[in-house]
């Protein structure tokens, strides 16, 4: 496919004899937003971590722009630069200011001039409404603000694709919204994203495609999120979505 960014073929992952992911296949096109949902322990987070080469894989391959991503490959740091990731727990560097959290990798890894990196960082911070916090340390920010900075930090590396791993799971409800708004605006600007989330309303609104993962395999895949969330085809997806229903 011409505008394909990421292709995953027969991905197999096991850990100490337990199969965590089996025979996963996925193709992500440029600008596409894919939401991965599923019960906890289904392998969603591991799936994202494999794509960013934070985990060894035991079979299959992950191709970014046709180039393999492997944890033990020499060019793994180059590949990771093209794959942005935001984690569930606040992963900002506590000993660096917000601005330096963002510019550290552009300066040290991409060898960009400090002034240019800072300029872009400030523009991005402006976009998420945190330009006035550039000089603060992470501990001075709320959880929602920290996650917005974490997104900016990933964006500043100009990744081909952004992986978001339950980025609102540790947040108070009123902070979830401010973070998800940022994600929605990124989607509008055409960012390619692979999102693991438990926020079903958000998933439904933002997804171009939904993957339902259970027991390490894709149980249901739908390119019509509205239809999927109203009427999932498989019994396992039906049962899972029912757990969000209180009527």
């Amino acid at each position: 496919m011409e505008n394909e960014v990421l292709r995953i073929e027969h991905l197999h992952k096991e850990f100490e004899g337990n199969v965590i992911l089996k025979d996963l296949n996925l193709t992500v096109r440029r600008g596409e937003v894919i939401v991965v949902i599923g019960p906890s322990g289904c392998g969603k987070s591991t799936f994202l971590r494999c794509i960013n080469a934070l985990e060894d894989i035991q079979g299959g391959q992950i191709l970014l722009d046709g180039h393999p991503v492997r944890r033990d490959a020499k060019d793994v740091t180059q590949m990771r630069q093209k794959i942005g990731m935001v984690f569930q727990s606040y992963d900002l560097f506590p000993h660096k200011t917000i601005l330096h959290n963002i510019t550290l990798a552009p300066e040290k890894v991409q060898k960009r001039p400090r002034a240019e990196a800072e300029k872009e960082a400030m523009e991005l911070l402006e976009r998420v409404g945190l330009a006035d916090r550039a000089g603060d340390y992470p501990r001075q920010l709320s959880g929602g603000q920290k996650q917005r900075v974490a997104i900016v930090r990933a964006l500043c590396m100009h990744p081909e694709i952004l992986l978001l791993d339950e980025i609102t799971a540790a947040l108070d409800p009123e902070m979830v919204h401010e973070v998800l708004e940022v994600v929605v605006s990124l989607a509008r600007l055409g960012s390619t994203m692979l999102i693991v989330t438990h926020e079903m309303a958000f998933a439904r609104a933002i997804a171009d495609r939904v993957l339902f993962l259970d027991g390490g395999e894709i149980v249901e895949e739908s390119s019509d999120p509205k239809a999927f969330f109203t009427k999932p085809q498989t019994p396992r997806a039906q049962a899972f979505l029912k757990t969000f229903d209180y009527e």
Binding site: L54, M85, S89
Partner: peptide, 19 residues
């Protein structure tokens, strides 16, 4: 997660340790 987020930004193991 500190190490992982540094790695995910494309830092080498040495850069991750140092910075």
């Amino acid at each position: 997660v500190q190490e992982e987020s540094a790695l995910s930004l494309g830092m080498s193991r040495y850069q991750t340790l140092r910075y």
